[in-house]
């Protein structure tokens, strides 16, 4: 019978052995493959954006632009960084609840909220930069075309971002359905 075959295969398949020292190392957050990647990316982003924020005022004539435009630019940089830090926390704690269905339900809700926030913060980030760099520009047909191209690229990115998150939420939904 097929089910017995599956049970036999599950029970008898040989697995590699991992030593106690390796297991101890794996329990450390530093060694986590996904979290260490996110930490590296966050570190690079924070350093790069900090340098940008220190230098932009003189390099990109921030002193010649209205104060509110400078505030929008700073927020456009800070909000995505804060959002990424929250994402790190979600990635660190995917298991919550006393059973798989409850845990996946909670995780799916968090991912949905994070997905919406991700798309919104990306648009805030892009819009803030557009607003800053196009402020005070005397538009001519060429610049209007450039602006239209940039906005088109933003919209394509928005669509791709939406598709990626929708797919992830769908995968979680499918997994949840299989537990019913």
């Amino acid at each position: 019978m097929e089910l017995n075959d599956i049970k036999t295969t599950w029970s008898t398949v040989e697995s590699p052995r991992v030593s106690d020292q390796e297991i101890r190392d794996m329990a450390s957050e530093k060694m986590h493959p996904v979290l260490s990647g996110i930490r590296k990316q966050l570190t690079i982003e924070i350093i790069a954006w900090s340098i940008f924020l220190i230098c932009y005022y003189s390099m990109f004539d921030g002193d010649k632009k209205p104060v509110w435009i400078n505030i929008v630019l700073v927020l456009s940089v800070l909000i995505p960084i804060i959002h990424n830090l929250l994402g790190y926390r979600i990635a660190k704690y995917p298991v919550q609840g006393t059973n798989i269905r409850e845990s996946l339900n909670r995780y799916k809700s968090k991912v949905k909220v994070y997905a919406i926030a991700s798309i919104i913060t990306r648009q805030i980030y892009l819009s803030g930069f557009l607003l800053f760099f196009f402020n005070g520009v005397n538009f001519n047909p060429g610049k209007y075309i450039s602006l239209a191209i940039i906005i088109s690229i933003f919209l394509v990115q928005l669509f791709i971002s939406y598709r990626i998150w929708a797919k992830r939420v769908k995968i979680l939904g499918s997994a949840l359905t299989s537990f019913r």
Partner: peptide, 14 residues
């Protein structure tokens, strides 16, 4: 191997 590591980390956290 990466998943094994992630699972071990989650087991320790939980």
């Amino acid at each position: 191997e990466d998943l094994f590591q992630e699972i071990t980390f989650q087991l320790w956290k939980s």
